[in-house]
């Protein structure tokens, strides 16, 4: 059976991981390649690298990083952040990225999704959606959640699917950073609405949150950062617990 995926997310700035990372046995917490290898060895199913570098110039260091990760890591990885053109994606895929994730640029110019999926195939195009629930309605937000839009989450999800997205990475801004669990109600609705995989993001704090997001939230994958980086939830333990609760995982 197809298993549910556990995906650590690494924020990258100027080719280094940012935010604290505190692994057992890890010498250089800032080197994304070392971290990526470690996560692959510990049983992560995929990795996401989010480039938060401010300038185009700094993005070139991202290409070097992607090349190094591809050379050393034997599981799939996605690169996101600041991608806005066919050329950007071409460069990253040529450096060895398996998938790219687009967010604001897709909202600003939705046809970008069509262009990318036509050229590279749906399988490598992830559309990331940051949304916030305001008075019972979910609205898409841009630029890392700082700019609200009038666009409704569920309508946008339908649209990105029809334009050729291969997967949706949904982050609930109401839950992100709270460690109080994923937005399972919205996730379940998304999963029923579209026929492409949904990655749950935002809110992971305990093992139970992961169990819930796979069972109640019907998520196909769950993404988290700090609970993995600080060793609060070791991936192997998490997967063993998931299996005990009849969630199929790769162990």
């Amino acid at each position: 059976m197809l298993t549910k995926r556990i995906i650590p997310c690494l924020d990258i700035k100027d080719g280094r991981t940012v935010k604290g990372v505190n692994f057992v046995d890890l010498r250089d917490a800032g080197d994304p390649v070392v971290l990526a290898k470690q996560y692959a060895d510990l049983g992560a199913d995929e990795l996401v690298f989010l480039d938060i570098s401010a300038t185009q110039e700094k993005r070139r260091t991202m290409h070097d990083m992607v090349l190094k990760v591809a050379a050393q890591v034997n599981i799939p990885f996605t690169v996101g952040g600041g991608i806005s053109s066919v050329e950007d994606v071409d460069d990253l895929l040529h450096c060895g990225a398996d998938k790219v994730s687009i967010n604001s640029s897709a909202v600003k110019r939705p046809v970008l999704i069509n262009e990318l999926s036509d050229k590279f195939g749906s399988q490598c195009i992830v559309v990331a959606i940051d949304a916030k629930e305001i008075a019972g309605e979910w609205y898409v937000h841009l630029a890392g959640g700082t700019i609200p839009t009038e666009i409704k989450l569920f309508e946008w999800a339908k649209e990105v699917e029809s334009r050729g997205a291969g997967e949706i990475l949904f982050t609930s801004m109401n839950h992100d950073g709270t460690k109080s669990g994923f937005a399972n109600e919205a996730l379940a609705k998304l999963s029923e609405l579209v026929n492409i995989p949904i990655i749950a993001s935002g809110g992971a704090g305990t093992v139970k949150h992961f169990i819930d997001t796979f069972k109640e939230g019907k998520a196909d994958a769950a993404l988290a950062a700090s609970v993995f980086h600080f060793g609060e939830i070791p991936i192997k333990d998490l997967k063993e617990e998931l299996r005990k609760h009849n969630v199929e995982v790769r162990l």
Partner: peptide, 29 residues
């Protein structure tokens, strides 16, 4: 859901291509 995306088991293995690989090993698809 289409595409199938993620790790699934390979079963009923019968070839030297799978030498040393257990039944129900996980592969990425």
């Amino acid at each position: 859901k289409v595409p199938q995306m993620g790790w699934n088991t390979v079963n009923n293995l019968k070839s030297d291509l799978f030498k040393g690989i257990n039944e129900r090993a996980y592969m990425y698809l």
